[in-house]
Simulated assay, not measured.
Amino acid sequence: MSTRPTKDQLAAAQDTTIPDVIAPGLDVLFCGINPGLYSGVLKQHFARPGNRFWPALHAGGFTPRLYKPAEQEQLLDLRLGITNVVARTTARADELTNDELREGGELLAAKVLKYRPEWLAVVGITAYRTAFGFPKARVGPQEHRIDDTHVWVLPNPSGLNAHWTPTGLGEEFGRLRTASRDRRNR
């Protein structure tokens, strides 16, 4: 789809799902809160124009160039993947209930145990706090692990998250990139 989704297409995408970009043994499995309607229409993660995930991924050193959402499957070649805490699409993340987030955390933990990435990077501190029951968690590496998988919490890259500038997002993604390289080189 080369044009913007229509209002009807966006409405039809409510409560749908999009496939994970995942494989066993990834270096980093990025985990969004849940897909937005724009992503639901296109079946691409972080697809809405203005979402800063793809620029932050590049600025952080994970990709050799700025990827587009339509190129998401190419992340697997870089040992990276994408999933979500909650699979269903919504217009806004605040439409999710705390119960959905907690259930999503359980499903995510099972997915991590199955695919065994080196790092799980949850993109959104509030969702992480609720999904995993760590109300005082902060952005950065967590003491919490899922078996052998290390956990890092990144800021939400939504354009609505004005607390984090594009530069700050890139730096935080870069901190994770450095940590993931360091662990891999041990």
Rank of each mutant, 00 (worst) to 15 (best):
R138E: 13
T178W: 12
E100L: 05
K68P: 03
W54A: 13
P35Y: 14
K114Q: 01
A13H: 05
T63A: 08
T167H: 10
G36F: 06
I33H: 03
G124R: 00
P155Q: 08
I82Y: 06
L29H: 02
A109W: 12
R88L: 01
T178F: 08
L120A: 13
G32M: 15
A23S: 09
K68Q: 00
P141R: 06
P35D: 15
H163V: 07
F53Y: 11
R48C: 00
R181C: 07
D148Q: 11
A56Q: 07
T6A: 03
N34M: 12
G25E: 15
G174D: 10
Y128D: 08
Y38W: 14
D27T: 13
L120K: 04
V122C: 07
F134Y: 10
L37H: 05
G61N: 10
G140Q: 05
R79Y: 13
Y115W: 04
A91T: 13
E106G: 09
P117A: 11
H150C: 10
W152R: 06
G124W: 01
H150M: 03
R102V: 15
I82W: 09
A91S: 14
D147L: 08
Q74D: 13
P157M: 03
V86G: 05
P166H: 06
T126L: 13
V86P: 00
T149R: 04
N161F: 01
F173I: 04
Q74H: 09
D148P: 04
G25R: 10
T130V: 12
Q74K: 03
A47N: 00
H58C: 02
S39D: 12
P19A: 15
R145Q: 10
E95R: 07
R129T: 07
L101S: 03
L78D: 14
D148N: 12
P19K: 09
W152S: 11
G174I: 10
S2V: 13
P141Q: 13
G25P: 04
K114P: 00
A70P: 01
I82N: 02
N84R: 04
L160C: 02
R175A: 05
T97A: 07
R4T: 11
Y38S: 12
R138K: 13
N185W: 02
Q9S: 10
A70D: 14
F134A: 05
L42K: 03
K111T: 15
H58V: 03
I22D: 08
A56S: 08
L101R: 04
L75C: 14
G105Y: 15
I22W: 11
A59T: 05
A59W: 06
G40I: 00
V153S: 08
N98T: 14
N84P: 00
K114N: 00
L29Y: 09
G168F: 02
Q142A: 01
